[in-house]
Amino acid sequence: MKRIFIAIALVVSVMNSGMAQKIKGSDTVLPLAQKEAEVFMKHNAGKKVTVTGGGSGVGIAALIDKTTEIGMSSRPMKLSEKMKVNESGGSSIETIIAKDALAVIVNPSNKVSQLTREQLEGIYTSKITNWKEVGGDDMPIVLYGRESSSGTYDFFKEHVLANKNYSSKMLNMPATGAIVQSVSQTKGAIGYVGLAYIETTVKAVKVSYNKGKTFVEPSVVTAKNKTYPIVRPLFFYYLTSSSKAVKPLVDFILSPEGQKIVSDEGYIDLK
């Protein structure tokens, strides 16, 4: 009798894991999605949500392959990706769930505390290779960035580098946490991460988009009042065929309670 109960419990647990809603994609959105999922599941006993990272590109590819219900992304879906969805007869729905300020971080021992967009472009295209060229110590610049599957990689390239190609010397890291760790451990390092990932082990620099007239530090306040220039929306993408199934979770994230979680986690809410 005991064996029968155990067998039934096993079958039920396997079935439940198969029916879990899957969210996959952006490393930037990952901490937020995990927290939202955790609270959602507390309010909705019996509903299971699993959240995994991998990058915005990976999430959208999983959405196209239908191995995830929601693809989370820190960049808009590309037309080529929409065409792939279209080729299988589907349509994707885009929902902005929060915003995020993209911060440029350096090692805390680095005396450089502000950079213009032009300087950032020069650094990440290796036209500027030493910190002394931007007012710092005589120290080579070590570049850290994300991999090409990352929405943050695309966003930084488009908005900060004005679509110039990254230097081949940039070290491509698979996850945001790896950038934070590397920059905290390397004196000459520079990287870019979402605001929510900033820790005391790294220093966020102020950025100027008006050729040095004013420099603004990244924060929720400066992102909300639009003085900080590098702010981007964060997306959930899902197919119209899944919209009914994912609606409760999406509605929860957009609700006042869900948006409070956005602020609490260091992101910018949509209010």
């Binding site: 808009p76 590309k78 080529s80 065409m83 679509n163």
Partner: peptide
């Protein structure tokens, strides 16, 4: 080519 706003290819 695709336009920057990802609307036209």
């Amino acid at each position: 080519r695709t336009t920057k706003n990802e609307k036209i290819s």
